[in-house]
Amino acid sequence: MLSLFTKPRGVAGLAIVLAVGLIVTFAPLLAPFDPTQSSVFFLAPPDAERWMGTDDLGRDTFSRLLYGGRSSLIVGMGAAVIATLVGVPIGLAAGYLGGKFDVVARQFIDLFIALPGLVLALIITAVMGPTLFNLVLVLGFVSWPKVARLARGQALAIRESVFVEASRAVGAGPAWIIHAHIWPNVVRIIAAQFALTVAYSIFTSASLSFLGLGVPPPTPDWGAMVRTGFDYLALNPSMSMAPSGAVALTVFGFYLIGTSIE
């Protein structure tokens, strides 16, 4: 895990994620305007007072951007936590225990991986209704099979290693082996997958918002901002460019973290 702090890309990723996190947390202190407060200056271009201009309802884009990251980060992290909590135990158990459990688990995992995540998320959200909580659940549900597959593969490889046989030879049972050998050997790769899942979930939640199935208005959300700004792209480009940039930057940050963990 040390590589995260020594590799340039890991440090850069951490810096980005940390910065985004701090900004959205302290959005009330940093934002010059109320993000939900309409004004008469709609579709204003950037100026000294309103750095990124205003949207179609005259709300300050910069302030909305600061607040809008909250839902993205909550959805991203929440979905990754759920995917990990569900995927890791299933994957480790399937890989280490093998047998019938593995056969069933593998079918499930393969089935869900074969379905395109965005479409699945779209359908479920449409049925359940787009609340923040539902989004977290849905995106976690879409991501767990990938985590499970990874954990299963790793557990399978480590189960066959000589050091696990050596552990069995001194009398260790499955619980000990998973705790003392399998887990320490998979934790890095699962941490990496966690970061990548956050990135994927932020991206997908933005896509859902863009399609109108994101966090309901008037709560500011990057995906929804991009969608609204899209209609005024020629008139006021910063309205959609700023939130897409924010999504890209955050996703990139988590991606850098994920890929720098060996």
Partner: peptide, 16 residues
């Protein structure tokens, strides 16, 4: 009853 394996590189958990 114990065992000593052939490959000393594979028989110790690298994370320990």
């Amino acid at each position: 009853a114990q065992i000593v394996f052939q490959d000393p590189y594979a028989s110790i958990d690298p994370t320990m």
